[in-house]
Design a protein around this nucleic acid. Structure first.
Lengths: 180, 180
DNA sequence: CATAAATATCTCAAATTGATATATAACGGG
DNA sequence: CCCGTTATATATCAATTTGAGATATTTATG
């Protein structure tokens, strides 16, 4: 499931420009899949090349042309087939956890700041996921519902854990006591 | 926190070859940060170039030379400084959740298989994290402890959620009933 | 009235992935 | 004893992705 395929997937929800698609990534996939313009625009160019989407250029005065992409029947087939056959990978890169792993090299103040900042990020994500669940009352969709609930559960678990166990990190070690 | 910096970090735990380092990534950072040879070997070459590590080539009969890397004082300083100043990013790419998001395009059998397989992966990760916690009894380290506990908490939350709410996905929708 | 944010596309160097190539030893099953 | 698999060990490379920046205008906001 590369950015190409997911652009196709998001286009099943309706025609969109690259700019729009970026926003859909941010609202729908926030918390578990990110994509920047650097991958979205080349993806759309490729999809148009291979007739999985069509591109309608709408000229606007002043700004660059707005290019609206629409999924084709071939594209829909391709997407369904991708969902049916692709083996999903799970990749994560948490620099936060990587740094905390080396907590013994980090002064307590800095550790507290790192945790507080990460907690704030998670609170933000939680808020957005809750907003997503609210929207669903009007447009029910089991997949979206499951994913939004999943995100909320995980995020709450992360927040709880951090608050409950942060003291583990800032308790002075014998090494740190000697240094001070 | 790129692979370069984390190689340096792992080398604070003792000298290692690229091959060893890969295994350390897999045991220590499993579940939250992965790195392949394709990034580790270039990283080590760069670190050696900039005197953050030294490289000792140990010739072995038959196999290629084993190159053992050791962190230098300069490297240790660089790493501590990186931990002190770097803003940690959190990136995740869950193709699993991305696919589930589009559950309405996926037949129930396939959905069940996807969930079962993901659950198995999570069980496996959980087992490894628990093994990590056990090891800690002998070599206590607050950072490692926190991270291992964090992973366990999140993983259990994910597994629980999946089992509790998977029925949301495989309940037939009106669209699917019509198709059959 | 200035200035920040939103709209909109695109490029590019750098980092990373994932697969592959190379070569040997060790281990277990048939 | 042979065969396949796993472990040891390094390295390269195309494809993908990131993250930042270039460009240019309109629309809010203070």
């Amino acid at each position: 499931m590369d950015v190409k395929t997911l652009c196709l997937g998001l286009l099943t929800q309706g025609a969109a420009s690259g700019y729009d698609l970026k926003k859909r990534f941010e609202t729908c996939f926030k918390s578990f899949y990110s994509a920047g313009y650097g991958s979205i625009y080349p993806a759309l160019a490729y999809l148009a090349d291979t007739d999985l989407v069509t591109c309608e250029e709408i000229s606007q005065d002043g700004r660059p042309d707005r290019k609206v992409y629409r999924i084709t029947d071939k594209g829909r087939d391709y997407f369904t087939e991708a969902l049916a056959s692709h083996q999903p990978a799970h990749k994560m890169r948490s620099e936060f956890l990587a740094m905390i792993f080396f907590a013994e090299f980090i002064p307590p103040d800095r550790l507290n700041k790192l945790i507080d900042e990460r907690a704030e990020e998670l609170q933000q994500i939680l808020k957005e996921l809750e907003a997503m669940s609210d929207t669903l009352a009007k447009h029910p969709d089991s997949g979206v519902e499951f994913v939004a609930g999943f995100g909320q559960t995980i995020t709450r678990a992360a927040l709880d854990y951090m608050q409950q166990y942060r003291h583990l990190l800032t308790k002075e070690t014998s090494a740190q006591r000697q240094a001070s």
